[in-house]
Simulated scan of single mutants.
Amino acid sequence: MFQSTIFGVAALCVATSAVAQVAPAPFSLPPLPYAAAALEPVIDAQTMTLHHDRHHQAYVDALNKAVAADPALKGQSLDALVAKAGTLPVAVRNNAGGHWNHSFFWKTMAPPAQAGQPSPALAAAIDRQFGSLAAFKAAFKEAGTKRFGSGWVWLVAKADGTLAITSTPNQDNPLMDVAEVKGTPILGNDVWEHAYYLKYQNRRADYLDGWWQVVDWKTVSDRYAVTLTR
């Protein structure tokens, strides 16, 4: 009986130790803030499901793997990794960017009926910088269509308070130390082919035109308002 108890305690200790050694992954896939079909007909449900459940999940998984392989990165936030991406291994830069960009992207959109309009403050800032909302959309589309290969197009608030349109390659973004134009993203669109190819094929310009129907202007306006308090 005594011997059995000893073996039982020993087994419990081993099991407890094994559980303690399995730390949760630092990064996880955020759920979509709406149903996969909620952005139709602009973005179809199949594209949303593949984009979120497979592409974004792959960035999260690869980022967790890359961070686990480098003790110096333990405990660092996603924002911290993105900010110094140019000093980090390519796997961390690409996958931290992919995770940050997509997490931002999902929240930038809403079902067409909820898209709304820019706030008065943001609308005025767009008019000052670009002349009109229509002119801004045209310039944003041009930046997106001219992005060679895969990447993103952004509207950012710069340190001096002005707005700017910029584009980044691959999974880079304007918060990175390697960005040509730095600023706080308030709106961004994914122009990788996996974001639109099932519905639009090679017609990236059509995708960019249709996308405005699902831009969540309240969220974008709230992001802009935060930059005014910094």
Rank of each mutant, 00 (worst) to 15 (best):
V9S: 12
P112Q: 05
P41C: 06
D70K: 10
T16F: 14
L208C: 02
P31D: 06
Q57E: 06
N94F: 03
I6M: 15
E142D: 15
A91E: 12
T145F: 04
M109G: 01
W106H: 08
A11P: 10
G188F: 10
A83E: 03
A25H: 08
H99K: 03
V215T: 14
A195P: 02
A62D: 10
A36K: 00
S28Q: 07
T87A: 12
A139I: 07
L133P: 11
L63D: 04
P120I: 05
P41M: 07
S132G: 06
D190W: 02
G98A: 12
N94M: 03
N95G: 11
F104L: 00
T5N: 11
S28C: 01
P33V: 11
L198A: 08
L73F: 06
A91T: 06
V191E: 02
A23I: 07
Q114V: 14
E40D: 06
I165N: 06
P24F: 13
N94S: 09
H51G: 11
Q3R: 15
A69R: 15
Y200A: 08
R93I: 12
L73D: 04
L29D: 02
V156N: 02
A35F: 05
Q129G: 09
G8D: 14
G86L: 02
P120R: 01
V92Q: 05
A36V: 00
H56Q: 08
Q171V: 10
V14I: 14
D222K: 07
Y34D: 12
T227V: 05
A139C: 05
R230I: 13
N189V: 03
P89L: 09
I165M: 01
V9Y: 14
F148W: 08
Q117F: 04
N101V: 08
W211H: 10
K65H: 13
F130D: 07
V9T: 11
A195L: 04
Y196R: 01
P26K: 01
D127E: 14
D61K: 14
P111M: 00
L187H: 02
G98Y: 11
K199Y: 09
A179W: 01
V92L: 08
P41A: 06
G188D: 05
T87H: 08
G151S: 04
L73G: 03
K65Q: 15
K84H: 04
P111E: 01
A96N: 05
A18V: 15
A157L: 07
W154Q: 10
V22F: 10
V178D: 13
G210C: 03
Y197H: 13
S150K: 07
E40T: 10
R203P: 08
A68K: 15
T219E: 13
V90K: 14
Q3N: 14
I126S: 00
L163E: 13
A157D: 06
K84S: 05
D61Y: 13
L12E: 12
L228R: 11
G210P: 02
T166V: 04
P169C: 02
P89T: 09
P120D: 01
L78S: 01
F136P: 01
K218V: 08
F27Y: 14
S28N: 05
K158D: 04
D79A: 08
